[in-house]
Simulated assay, not measured.
Amino acid sequence: MQLIKHTKPKMIISDEGKWIRDVNDVYVAEHTDEQTGELIPEKTPHYSTTIFVPDNFTEEQMNELYVEEEIKESEV
């Protein structure tokens, strides 16, 4: 994953064969809320190969906020 600084706005691009997701955007299986009994649907992460970020964005922030993962054939 690379932070491209010479563009406006800056952007993060993934390495070949990989994609990027927010560090907090994780898979959650379908389940029932214990307090309300409501059925909570499955949550799948959203992936991208390019993310546009503000001009003051740093590599440190990139590494704190985003995760790069290999693309699996079954997920394409």
Rank of each mutant, 00 (worst) to 15 (best):
M1I: 06
Q2T: 11
I4C: 00
I4D: 01
I4G: 02
K5L: 07
K5V: 06
T7N: 04
K8M: 08
K10W: 10
M11C: 13
I12K: 11
I12M: 05
I12N: 10
I13A: 05
I13F: 10
S14K: 04
D15N: 15
G17V: 01
K18D: 00
W19V: 04
I20L: 02
I20N: 00
I20V: 07
R21H: 12
D22M: 07
D22A: 09
D22I: 13
V23P: 03
V23A: 11
V23G: 05
N24S: 05
N24F: 04
D25T: 02
V26P: 00
Y27R: 07
Y27G: 03
V28R: 12
V28S: 09
V28Q: 10
A29S: 11
E30V: 04
E30R: 09
H31S: 09
T32L: 08
T32K: 11
D33M: 00
D33Q: 04
E34P: 01
E34D: 09
Q35F: 13
Q35I: 12
Q35Y: 08
Q35L: 15
G37C: 02
G37I: 08
E38T: 07
E38Q: 11
E38K: 13
L39Y: 06
L39A: 14
I40E: 08
K43P: 00
K43H: 09
T44H: 13
H46I: 14
Y47V: 05
S48F: 15
T49Y: 09
T49V: 10
F52N: 03
F52H: 03
V53A: 03
V53G: 02
V53Y: 06
P54Y: 05
P54D: 02
D55Y: 11
D55K: 10
D55T: 05
D55G: 06
D55C: 09
N56K: 15
N56I: 01
N56C: 03
F57N: 03
F57Q: 01
E59V: 11
E60C: 10
E60A: 15
Q61P: 04
Q61C: 05
M62F: 00
M62T: 10
N63M: 08
E64L: 12
E64W: 11
E64V: 12
E64H: 08
L65M: 13
L65S: 04
Y66K: 06
Y66F: 13
Y66M: 06
V67H: 09
I71K: 02
E73R: 13
E73I: 09
S74T: 15
E75A: 14
E75L: 10
V76S: 15
V76P: 00
